[in-house]
């Protein structure tokens, strides 16, 4: 078939044999199994040719990397409740989905996957939603490479000049209801990135943001004002609270991060306690203050109606 097509379209190239990249001046087509991917220069293709070729081959957008067999199976699993049958099924647990997104027109999916692949020892699996967002499927054994998503963000930002965000769902021990889990991870990521400027987050990081976002505007304002009182506009104190929570209420570590002497931080905490009656050194009180801080930040914002957890998972 290839030889016959080449007689009609002399520019025909076979991916992997004649060329190693998907040139954007070519239209690309693959067979069902991606065993053969061929490209024909656009100058040789009239709309009628494209329609004809598309009848027996699958058109492929050159901006996207060619999906592997396993990626196709995961795609199928997140789009429907059914998993591929029998021995062909390469979907396995434990796994987790990590949602990612980056700005438009900054990088192509092919480029992104090539760079990300270099950070992992095993072949990575990416399920693209669009040119700027998708899901990374992580198998537990492949995830332990010593590079955190926070580091990956900085590394790719300096190499690819692109601002990337990652949101990791919890690990799953079974492949049941993959489609629901997928929607939960994606919806939560979109929601939480509207309230947090962190570039790399996990589901556990997101929970307080989600709880606060689910409260009414009035309740958020009330909690913020009641708990934080005169500190509600005190940027330094709010930062101190945030750092303390991030440092597991460890005073020495927090003082170091805040560039304060340990005693100065103790003094500030004493003052906060005297004025509000809340001791941030106690876990449950710190949690209340942290939620009040998030409530204050989201206080004036109107959230669109809708349940974040509509898909369960």
């Amino acid at each position: 078939m290839i030889d016959r097509l080449r007689k009609i379209y002399p520019s025909l190239l076979l991916y992997g044999e004649d060329i190693d990249t998907l040139d954007s001046d070519y239209k690309w087509f693959s067979d069902e199994e991606n065993t053969r991917v061929l490209g024909i220069h656009e100058s040789e293709l009239a709309p009628k040719d494209i329609a004809l070729l598309s009848a027996f081959l699958l058109p492929h957008n050159a901006k996207f990397p060619l999906p592997t067999k396993e990626e196709k199976q995961w795609q199928q699993a997140i789009r429907s409740a059914e998993t591929p049958p029998g021995s062909e099924n390469r979907i396995s647990a434990p796994f987790r989905f990590t949602y990612f997104s980056f700005n438009k027109n900054q990088i192509t999916p092919v480029f992104f996957k090539a760079a990300l692949q270099e950070l992992f020892e095993k072949q990575i699996l990416i399920l693209w939603d669009s040119e700027t967002e998708g899901i990374l499927v992580e198998k537990k054994e492949a995830a332990d490479d010593g590079v955190s998503y926070g580091q990956i963000v900085d590394l790719l930002m300096s190499d690819l000049y692109v601002k990337i965000r990652f949101f990791s769902g919890p690990f799953r021990q079974s492949t049941e209801a993959v489609h629901a889990y997928y929607r939960t991870v994606k919806n939560t990521a979109v929601k939480v990135f509207a309230h947090s400027d962190k570039a790399a987050m996990t589901y556990a990081d997101a929970v307080p943001h989600l709880m606060v976002a689910a409260a009414s505007k009035e309740l958020r304002q009330e909690i913020g004002q009641t708990v934080l009182q005169e500190y509600i506009s005190d940027r330094e104190t709010l930062e101190m609270i945030e750092v303390l929570v991030r440092c597991n209420l460890n005073i020495s570590e927090s003082a170091k991060e805040l560039h304060l002497h340990r005693n100065s931080l103790q003094y500030r905490l004493d003052r906060f306690s005297e004025k509000t009656g809340i001791d941030i050194r106690q876990f449950h009180q710190a949690m209340a203050v942290y939620l009040a801080l998030l409530a204050k930040r989201q206080g004036g914002q109107q959230h669109p109606p809708g349940n974040l957890h509509e898909d369960g998972g």
């Binding site: 900054q106 270099e118 020892e121 926070g150 990956i152």
Partner: peptide, 19 residues
């Protein structure tokens, strides 16, 4: 676009490609 601004960046996380 950032890639066309002729800049180079170094960030706090000096992570490298481990492999």
């Amino acid at each position: 676009a950032p890639k066309d601004r002729d800049i180079a960046m170094v960030f706090q996380n000096y992570a490298l490609y481990p492999h």
